[in-house]
């Protein structure tokens, strides 16, 4: 087993062990913190598919995170207020997580498709700016749309249900989120080694080569961006369920920046990079946040150190240079 595999196994073990430790130590709030870390990690795994595999520096992933969040908020709000979602067709809202997840995934994938079609006409700094601009457009639209709370956001009184689980019990909700994260990580792992992953990897490094072997690098990247947006959207639905609250904060450009920070601190293009980055963020937020409101200064220092001295993020620092797949 190489060092990266050992690090991944250690992170995995820690994630599985957290609830046990929290109950033993009598600190149940740790489970909520860990859930937050797992959901952030999922959002960042989504971005890592675009950024790490496809080289697309998207500064607009809060759109997908927020769309997923609002998918949950809107569906659950209609269900709790007994108002139909679509009046003409008498389609009701829902409190069922699988249905909410499906809607979150589809709507964030669609958002990524629309944004991707336009943004992928550009590259480099223009791509960053276009994704940021879309993020701001969606953000201000949500603020000015009064039907679903506008600036005040939407509160959901009771966490949505999952068949066979009591999601109100923190450990059960944590376990559910962890399962989703692991499933998506497995998908990410397979994707990177698939024919599509090979084409995407090459489209990031040498698009002209991809074209001269008869493939369309832009289309390959677009599909990757859609998958990426869908994953981050799913994370958004879970995040809204964790807080039982959705607001425009989830759509803000700061959110996009935070998701990107998770990926960069952990390690761009490394399978567990986003998990390590999100985990570290939540730990710092909790412990340093107690000491100072300006705890993000320390986050900034860490980010600076990682960017200056360890291009592969924390995973890269521990495990060395990425091995080529295969």
């Amino acid at each position: 087993m190489n060092r990266e595999a050992m690090l991944n196994a250690a992170v995995l073990l820690a994630l599985v062990a957290v609830p046990g430790w929290a109950l033993w130590a009598g600190e149940p709030f740790t489970i909520t913190l860990a859930t937050r870390a797992v959901i952030f990690a999922l959002a960042a795994v989504g971005l890592n598919i675009a950024l790490g595999l496809g080289g697309m520096v998207s500064l607009g992933h809060a759109v997908y995170f927020g769309v997923g969040g609002y998918a949950m908020g809107i569906l659950a709000w209609h269900a709790q207020s007994y108002t139909p979602l679509v009046e003409a067709l008498a389609i009701p809202g829902t409190k069922s997580m699988p249905v909410i997840w499906l809607v979150a995934v589809i709507s964030s994938a669609l958002a990524a498709l629309v944004i991707g079609v336009l943004a992928l006409r550009t590259s480099g700094v223009y791509f960053i700016m276009i994704t940021l601009a879309f993020g701001q457009m969606v953000y201000f639209f949500a603020i000015s749309w009064p039907a679903y709370g506008g600036e005040d956001g939407l509160s959901i009184y009771v966490r949505n249900g999952f068949p066979g689980l009591n999601t109100l019990v923190p450990v059960q909700f944590y376990g559910l989120c962890l399962m989703v994260l692991l499933a998506v990580l497995a998908l990410n792992w397979r994707l990177a080694r698939s024919p599509f992953g090979l084409a995407l990897n090459a489209a990031r490094q040498v698009p002209q080569r991809v074209e001269t072997v008869g493939l369309d690098p832009t289309r390959v990247k677009l599909v990757a961006l859609v998958i990426s947006g869908a994953v981050t959207g799913l994370a958004g639905a879970l995040f809204a369920d964790l807080n039982r609250f959705v607001s425009t904060t989830m759509l803000s450009w700061q959110m996009s920046g935070e998701i990107m920070v998770f990926v960069i601190i952990g390690g761009v293009g490394r399978l567990f990079g986003p998990v390590v980055g999100a985990g570290l963020y939540v730990i710092l937020e909790h412990f340093l946040g107690d000491l100072s409101d300006y705890w993000q200064v320390f986050l900034g220092l860490i980010l600076l150190a990682v960017v200056l001295f360890g291009r592969g993020g924390l995973v890269g620092i521990v495990a060395g240079r990425a091995r080529t797949h295969g």
Binding site: R190, R193, S194, P195, A199, L215, V220, V223, G326
Partner: peptide, 10 residues
């Protein structure tokens, strides 16, 4: 046929 996402290319 690049649109295969889960099978290992190797």
């Amino acid at each position: 046929r690049p649109w295969r996402f889960l099978r290992g290319v190797l």
